[in-house]
Each structure stands twice: as C-alpha cells, then as structure tokens.
Amino acid sequence: MKYKESKNFFPYPENPQRGDYVERVVDPRQAYYKVKPVNAEDEIPESASEFQK
C-alpha cells in the first residue's frame, strides 16, 4: 500500500506529494504517536505500524 492510500497519511497543504505518516506505538513503558515526513507515492514498509483510527 502507498502512503497516500493510508488513513494515517496527512499531506502538506503546500505540497500534497509529501506529508506526515502517523504511527501509534505502545512500547513496554509508554504509548505515543510518532510521525515523519514521507513521499505520498512511496510504499509503506512492512515494519510500519499501520493502525486503525
């Protein structure tokens, strides 16, 4: 699946070809949301934690 097809991808208004991909992580000590800039057309890696809203 491409980032742009994910509900957790939020394109930048000024450049929709790029955006933030949000992941939810629950590690042994805490829960958090993390994000990093990605290209809309790139494939989501298997290691990403694609989660439901």
Binding site: V25, Y32, K34
Partner: peptide
C-alpha cells in the same frame, strides 16, 4: 526537518534528542 518526532500520551511538553523515547 526530517527526523521522526513523537508525542507521549498525557504530555504537555515535547521535544527529545532521539526519534523514539528509548
């Protein structure tokens, strides 16, 4: 501009020197 950032549940202050809390 490109590093992963995160917000911990219940936090009111943010900013960390790494890309995940550990």
């Amino acid at each position: 501009d490109n590093m992963t950032i995160f917000i911990t549940d219940h936090a009111q202050l943010v900013g960390y020197v790494g890309t995940t809390p550990n």
